[in-house]
């Protein structure tokens, strides 16, 4: 439990540092982003929102306040989820834009990443168990090659061959045109069909990483005495592989989750961009291109929070799987 408390403290700290980096970034860069933002608003729009300039100043700097004053305002606005108004989606507030786009990304990356974890560790475990067997010789190199491919190249190839040429998958957007989001069968099935190809691409990109990691650890675990002992006890091969070797081998790859998940969230930007998928990644790219720094900055914060939350969930899982962490 002490371990978990330490992790929690670290996450809170990491969140604070991420926020601070986010606060400092625009202030350290040459030029003043605030002019870029204000360019996108007409005088009438500015007049209609008297507080807006102050909000932006607190977010990206450029006002007459001291940096400390800005910092306090910035933190308090973030706590209240007030990220200002998005200039590219004017007059929608940033939080609303995020609320509309983030669920798509969470769905996409959540499903795909979970699947890639299951498939990757499963194959890795089996490949190590049967060294030099069919799985080890065919599936492992295949997924390795796939994951060595740049994700956006895989996405483009998938879009062209599987989507456009073969026509198996829709190639754009999160749901069919003409539908509106809601909890009805029509929308959900459409959303599911549109997510298939992006999910396949993420699977192709990340399964190899889990697989290789699991295989390496598993190879070392198989040499452990408790695995030999399990064999000697006359347990079935399957039970030894899963409950003795696999159960232990899965712990180190879980600890590598943070870096891999953070990079998957990054890959999302490309995949959403290629498939015109209206998630947080595509929104981020468009916000940056359109100088909508308030939106961009808020998205970075939100994505960091997502990674932290995912890590927290993994830590809980780790705690369930490894009894040594509970008492240590």
């Amino acid at each position: 439990m002490r371990w978990f408390a330490r992790r929690l403290v670290f996450y809170v700290f990491a969140l604070w540092v991420a926020l601070t980096i986010n606060f400092l970034l625009p202030r350290m860069m040459p030029g003043s982003p605030i002019d870029g933002i204000l360019q996108h608003l007409t005088p009438a729009q500015l007049a209609a929102n008297p507080g807006i300039v102050k909000t932006y100043e607190a977010l990206v700097g450029g006002g007459n306040n001291s940096i400390w004053q800005d910092y306090i305002t910035y933190l308090s606005r973030i706590v209240h989820l007030d990220f200002g108004v998005s200039t590219s989606h004017y007059p929608a507030p940033v939080s609303q834009v995020i609320g509309q786009t983030l669920p798509y990304s969470i769905f996409l990356v959540g499903v795909a990443f979970f699947l890639s974890f299951l498939i990757g560790t499963g194959i890795g475990m089996f490949a190590a168990w049967r060294r030099g067997g069919a799985v080890d010789n065919i599936l492992v190199p295949t997924f390795m090659a796939l994951s060595a491919f740049p994700a956006f190249f895989t996405a483009l190839l998938g879009l062209y061959f599987l989507g456009l040429k073969a026509g198996w998958f829709p190639i754009q957007h999160a749901y069919d045109n003409g539908l509106s989001p809601g909890f009805n069968w029509e929308f959900l099935s459409s959303a599911f069909r549109h997510a298939q190809l992006p999910i396949l691409v993420i699977l192709a990109a990340y399964t190899g990483g889990w697989m290789l990691n699991m295989r390496t650890v598993m190879i070392n675990t198989i040499g452990e005495d408790y695995v030999t002992m399990a064999h000697a006890k006359g347990l079935s091969d399957r039970r030894v592989m899963t409950w003795y070797a696999g159960r232990n081998a899965i712990l180190p790859p879980l600890n590598g989750f943070a870096a891999l998940f953070a990079s998957a969230v990054g890959g999302l930007v490309f995949i959403e961009y290629i498939f015109s998928y209206p998630g947080a990644g595509l929104t981020l790219q468009q916000a940056v291109l359109g100088n909508d720094y308030a939106l961009a900055q808020a998205l970075l914060v939100v994505l960091s929070v997502c990674v932290i939350v995912a890590n927290l969930l993994m830590d809980v899982l780790n705690l369930i799987l490894d009894p040594r962490l509970r008492t240590g």
Binding site: Y226, A230, Y244, N248, P323
Partner: peptide
């Protein structure tokens, strides 16, 4: 063979300290 192991011949391993599965 599976039945023979442990039922007929069991074993206390070299460095039996690590012979127990740490997560069970």
């Amino acid at each position: 063979l599976r039945r023979y192991r442990w039922r007929n011949v069991s074993m206390v391993l070299q460095s039996a300290m690590n012979a127990l599965n740490p997560v069970m």
